[in-house]
Design a binder for these strands. Structure first.
Lengths: 210, 210
DNA sequence: TCGTGCCTTTACCAAATGGTAAAAAACGAA
DNA sequence: TTCGTTTTTTACCATTTGGTAAAGGCACGA
């Protein structure tokens, strides 16, 4: 039943698995699943193609392993949304963390984007089992905050979509943004400021009219 | 110098070129450039692979032709932003048209998304020559509206990015949205209502304090 | 130091893929 | 109908790609 005996991964195994995952992230995020080749990944990982297969069962296995490994880390900011905190602060913190991740880990963002755009053929089940419950839970939390009059009335699902859309846009469509905005560094500052003000405006309680 | 003599395209040529473009849109938007195969496109177009090559010079030529043909149509809503109109109406109309296109032409949206995410390797020049001028022009227009006190102060570039991000999200990440939202039809209604209210809120003049 | 088992390389392979050559078929003006 | 042109098919081809077999190298404990 267990997929692998999994005694103890040797130091070499740990190092090489990591190398492969990193190389795969680079290549998959840039070309998508079908556009990426094992040769490219092997090259980026600094090892031979058969050696890749020694560590992973095949191309799809690498991709799936990568998505699984990143999923948790990628959802961490949403999971950190704390019910005991101040609603506005919590959501703004979430937004800021998402912006931070777009700037610092664009490859991860694009990896997911590629997968989702193409219909989530390999990550689909994990969306159901991993993302959906978390999403529902946090929607419930936001709904409660709204009922308590601590946030203006909004559709929580749509609010989260909006946050995702705006923040990830800067990573996923970086190529476009770079064409349209002259100064890259200034662009990030402007983006951060704008996004901050957008959600401050949207979440500004209009008098808690309940 | 002219790429083709281009006498008069016969009826058959017109019909088949259209078929190919439509099939290519379907396949490219689903798998990305490198993930799409000529066999798939030929299949979807209901003709043989060599017949494709008879009408287009090759895979890349089809892709480029497709992007070029769609670019204009895709930018039409932005181009329609009218300086003589009421700023709020103009922008809300723009947002609505973008939402409409996301719902009705998700393939077009995903085609561009795929291309941009992967670094715009084939459409890059067209972004510079086609999108950039239009973008700059409309930013200028919005800036003027703000100066005239007819819109609250905002960074025009970032505003447009926000509109793109939110509206296209529903097409590009449809697979994800479908997992997270139960009722698809109701989902679209909720999305439209939410997006409308978001931009109404953001663009609500706070007293034209100028 | 000497195996024993983990790691890596070399040499392949079958299928898929972008593309070509050239013959056959269909079309259309005279 | 007939002849030249346009369109389509059949049969290929070279390269790329995911993957395998098996031998060689290497590290490390006894």
């Amino acid at each position: 039943m267990a997929g692998k005996p999994a005694k103890k991964p040797s130091r070499i195994q740990i190092r090489n698995r990591r190398r492969i995952m990193d190389a795969a992230l680079e290549v998959f995020s840039q070309h998508g699943y079908r556009g990426a080749t094992l040769d490219q990944i092997a090259d980026a990982a600094g090892m031979s193609k058969p050696n890749l297969i020694y560590y992973f069962d095949g191309k799809e296995a690498i991709h799936v392993a990568l998505l699984n490994a990143l999923m948790e880390e990628w959802l961490a900011p949403l999971a950190a949304l704390d019910e005991s905190g101040e609603p506005l602060d919590e959501i703004l913190t979430y937004v800021r963390r998402k912006m931070d991740m777009s700037r610092r880990y664009p490859r991860e963002s694009r990896l997911f984007a590629n997968e989702i755009i193409q219909g989530a053929p390999r990550i689909g089940p994990h969306l159901q089992s991993g993302l959906k419950p978390l999403f529902d839970e946090k929607c419930q939390l936001i709904r409660r905050w709204i009922e308590e009059g601590r946030l203006p009335p909004t559709d929580p699902q749509q609010l989260i979509f909006t946050i995702w859309a705006i923040t990830q846009h800067y990573a996923d469509f970086e190529a476009q943004v770079r064409v349209l905005v002259a100064d890259e560094e200034a662009g990030w500052d402007a983006a951060n400021a704008h996004v901050e003000s957008v959600f401050r405006t949207l979440l500004a309680s209009p008098g808690t009219l309940g």
